[in-house]
Design a binder for these strands. Structure first.
Length: 683
DNA sequence: CATTGTGTAAAT
DNA sequence: TATTTACAC
């Protein structure tokens, strides 16, 4: 069947979704009286009121910026509410509640209006279709989580990311191809990903380039000469709003680390305090590793140590940095601590002037060489799935890694094998896969990819907290095609629950709930939190609670039905217990990696929690998750709201309807399945 | 003294 | 390979 393709190479529709000042929204949901107010979330730090890590839009109007100190924010905006990240604070006042971000921009057009203009090219009409879907998706996110998000819709990742932040909060922006040159000539260069640092600066200094559009005057050759072939080509594309990056799956972290800084007078100047803090961090690291082992069945291979150290006395060579050190990792708090100490001392020997070579006397000061540690960090790298089958036998008999000291003299240790990086072949397979309209996440948002005539699909939201772009002020004009707020805002009206989805270090105990049911189903990537749970049989299970309607609190009793599919067991099993701690890692992974073997008692694995709340939400859940064989959050064309469909021009409506018929005829039953995650096997 | 703490990826 | 550097959120 002949489909008219635009002659431009770019036919993709990519959307980028981004939660608005996410930490603030979490606090506001917990304390509704904070809604509509200037609020900032501060990271714990007694110095000058802590550092701001998220700022509400009301507070931004006063000029409050992320990364200011709490005290300064208070000066600029005396009414600001500063909420501490890790502290549990619980006065639940029922005050007025104002939903943020419901107001549309004055001159914003609806997607339908914009689409009905006569001069809209076909490729941009596709964008508008995507925009309608994204508006629905955002409304669904709001309904399920109470969080607003913003979105950008464009022909590639770069444009989608760029525009997602243009009309925050709670709005979305579509970037038609015709507007790209104007936009690129308008915005600061640093708004483009990877140009926010030194490369962007040198571009401005070397070439006087202030906007991405300024780059267009330089030949590909010139850019290649100055910045290398790869970067040169990339820059040449940037100038034209082109970007070939594919929407890739969010994968599990490949490393886990802990770090702390000791600024100014808090710097550590003796071995005792260094060992104290290293001990804390090693404990924390080991706990994270335990969790990763339980949840993902993975182990790390490498221990990496880094510190920032100042030399006080002697001859502090300017510019010399404390070296990073690494060694094979040995699991266990004490072992990690012992090895970290060795790595630290090894670094000190390299770092300190030779003539002052020191071997710090245990537990005493470092009188021989006056150093001050201003930062410590330890990490575990080379994390990969534990080998199974035959390999597990060999690894069972393999000698565990020795301490780094032992390694000095002994034969070479087992060398850590890093995770294989995707090759270009992989990426090619992925490209075909993606053009089928399957969605994959990236680290800071959800990207939705759909191509003409295919069923657009999307998967759930992943959080990001980057919307600090106060200087980013592009006006919304009709020709720009700004498409205002959630189309289906109404779907949030009947929500009156008080659920909580903590994330990251916001792991406060949540408000109570009764009768929460934890139901098992395969986990996809979501905004999520893991809870360690004690089952009746004293087995530790780790539960991954998803971004679905759910209330979780520490100490909460739960009942769980363990999904045979997710756990690799034959029949359904029951488990119950108490939520025991919040963990601070969001997770996302292909379904297959989520399968854990059952343990001897009770079993453990990743579960999805589901609360029995309002009928409306229950319906949402059932429609969007339970019926999906893979648990993915797929959007079916024939489930697009009729009102949304009606907004489209007749021509597009017809095309959508036809394509639905085709899909039904060709694939009567099949929806998304996990085969999509394995492009290499299908191609 | 003071943009923390994490994490990825590529260069060297 | 080990370490450093750059970048992002």
């Amino acid at each position: 069947m002949p489909v008219a393709r635009p002659d431009s190479g770019e036919t993709r529709v990519i959307a980028h979704l981004d939660l608005d000042c996410f930490y603030v929204q979490v606090e506001q949901r917990k304390r509704p009286e904070l809604r509509g107010k200037p609020v900032a979330v501060v990271q714990f730090n007694p110095w000058k009121g802590g550092g701001l890590i998220a700022v509400s839009y009301e507070a931004r109007k006063c000029g409050v910026l992320r990364c200011m100190r709490g005290d300064d924010a208070k000066k600029m905006c005396p009414d600001i509410e500063l909420v501490q990240v890790p502290t549990a604070h619980g006065h639940a006042n029922v005050n007025y509640y104002r939903d943020a971000g419901t107001e549309d921009g004055e001159n914003a057009m609806t997607a339908g209006e914009w689409l009905c203009q006569s001069n809209v090219p076909r490729c941009d009409a596709l964008l508008a279709c995507g925009a309608l879907i994204v508006a629905e998706l955002r409304a669904a996110v709001l309904a399920e989580t109470q969080f607003t998000c913003s979105a950008g819709i464009g022909h590639n990742k770069m444009l989608a990311k760029l525009t997602s932040s243009m009309h925050k909060p709670a709005q979305q922006t579509l970037i038609p191809s015709s507007y790209v040159p104007t936009l690129l000539a308008t915005i600061p260069l640093k708004k483009i990903g990877h140009l926010g640092g030194k490369l962007g600066k040198s571009l401005t200094e070397d070439l006087g380039v202030k906007t991405p559009g300024d780059l267009i005057q330089f030949s590909k050759l010139k850019l290649q000469e100055l910045y290398g072939v790869n970067t040169g080509n990339w820059l040449w594309d940037v100038a034209r709003g082109k970007n070939g990056d594919e929407v890739k799956a969010k994968v599990l972290p490949k490393s886990i680390s802990c770090g702390k800084t000791f600024a100014g007078r808090t710097a550590l100047t003796n071995m005792t305090s260094v060992m104290y803090w290293l001990g804390e961090m090693c404990d924390e690291l080991q706990e994270k590793l335990d969790i990763d082992l339980e949840v993902h069945n993975r182990k790390a291979k490498l221990l990496v140590f880094h510190a920032a150290v100042q030399l006080r006395g002697g001859n502090p060579q300017p510019g010399k940095k404390f070296p990073s050190k690494s060694c094979p990792i040995r699991y266990g708090k004490e072992k990690i601590l012992a090895d970290a100490r060795i790595l630290f001392e090894r670094g000190l020997r390299d770092f300190c002037p030779v003539n002052k070579s020191l071997s710090p006397v245990k537990g005493s000061s470092n009188s021989k060489c006056e150093w001050a540690v201003t930062a410590l960090s330890i990490g575990a790298g080379g994390i990969s799935t534990i080998p199974t089958g035959v390999n597990s036998i060999t690894s069972f008999f393999a000698a565990p890694p020795r301490s780094p000291e032992a390694n000095l003299s002994a034969s070479s240790p087992v060398s850590p094998t890093m995770c294989r990086m995707p090759s270009s072949d992989d990426l090619e397979g992925m490209a075909g896969f993606l053009s089928d309209g399957v969605t994959k996440d990236e680290e800071c948002g959800t990207l939705i990819s759909c191509s003409s005539g295919e069923r657009p699909s999307c998967r759930n939201l992943f959080h990001s907290d980057d919307d600090a772009n106060p200087d980013f002020d592009v006006k919304c004009t009709p020709s720009f095609g700004c498409i205002g707020s959630p189309v289906r805002q109404k779907s949030s009206l009947e929500l009156s629950r008080d659920h909580e989805i903590p994330r990251g270090c916001i792991a406060n105990p949540c408000s109570s709930l009764d009768g929460a049911l934890i139901q098992c189903s395969p986990v996809e990537d979501h905004l999520s939190v893991h809870c360690r749970v004690e089952t009746d049989s004293h087995t530790c299970a780790v539960v991954s609670i998803d971004s679905h309607p759910v209330d979780i609190s520490l100490g909460m009793k739960y009942e769980a039905t363990l999904n045979p599919c997710a756990l690799g067991i034959e029949t359904e099993e029951k488990a119950s217990g108490v939520v025991h701690s919040h963990l601070a890692r969001s997770s996302s992974k292909p379904l297959a990696e989520n399968v854990n073997p059952p343990s001897s008692a009770g079993g453990h694995g990743s579960l999805v929690a589901k609360a029995t709340s309002s009928p409306k939400l229950k319906d949402l859940w059932q429609r969007n998750v339970l019926k999906r064989p893979s648990g993915s959050w797929e959007y079916r064309q024939d489930e697009i709201d009729e009102e949304v469909l009606a907004e489209l021009p007749a021509e597009i409506q017809k095309e959508l309807l036809d394509s639905m018929k085709r899909n039904r005829a060709v694939r009567p039953v099949k929806r998304s399945n996990i085969g999509h995650f394995f492009p290499s096997s299908s191609k």
